[in-house]
């Protein structure tokens, strides 16, 4: 896809150079207007949108998240041989798209969720390059149960599991988000990191 887009760009730049270098004369021939319409109007709009859409799809991939060295341990944790960490379990069982595993879990399931995820990417840039990456990386805000329940909520296993029915209104609390899925003693390991394993 990148090669196609690059080739199309080269073709258009060639036409623009042709437009600039050709001696069109003092009048404005129809041909020059047609070339201008295509090279300066129609093509840039569609090609530019195509590139932006392609680029925005690239930023959803695990490989893109892994390009910052502070994320190396988190990306490696997807392949850890352990059934407890949520990231490893979901990734290795293909419960989330493996190519976009990070994006699948760390994007809010709302109308502007994906837009906010992209904007959060800009925040990551600011924190990493200007503020300085913190020693301990934490989410900017609490991980909402909604992100778990969009898949697990309708599941019979979720509703019938003994651990979710220890108290009378436990299920309601989970659904309302007042009791976090990631509470201590529950699903409290998101990523299994080498530094945390040493503490054990």
């Amino acid at each position: 896809m990148e090669i196609t887009l690059a080739l199309l760009a080269v073709i258009n730049i060639s036409f623009i150079v042709f437009l600039l270098l050709k001696e069109w004369g003092s009048s404005t021939p129809r041909a020059r207007k047609f070339v201008s319409l295509f090279t300066l109007g129609v093509f840039p709009i569609f090609w530019g949108l195509g590139v932006v859409v392609h680029d925005l799809k690239q930023v959803q991939k695990v490989s893109f998240c892994g390009k910052c060295h502070v994320m190396t341990d988190y990306v490696n944790s997807l392949n850890v041989d352990d059934t407890e960490p949520l990231s490893a379990v979901h990734y290795q069982n293909n419960w989330v798209p493996q190519e976009k595993a990070c994006y699948a879990c760390h994007t809010h399931y709302t109308m502007f969720g994906s837009t906010n995820a992209k904007l959060r990417g800009l925040t990551h840039l600011y924190v990493y390059y200007i503020k300085g990456a913190p020693e301990k990386i934490e989410l900017y805000e609490k991980y909402e149960n909604r992100e778990c329940l969009r898949c697990h909520g309708p599941a019979r296993k979720f509703a019938e599991t003994k651990a979710h029915n220890l108290e009378n209104d436990m299920l309601e609390q989970i659904r309302a988000g007042t009791r976090s899925c990631l509470s201590d003693g529950c699903h409290d390991v998101g990523h299994s990191l080498p530094s945390e394993e040493e503490d054990w």
Binding site: L5, P44, G48, D55
Partner: peptide, 10 residues
Amino acid sequence: GTISLVLSLI
């Protein structure tokens, strides 16, 4: 702009 966007691809 075209050159810059092509650079974003790589």
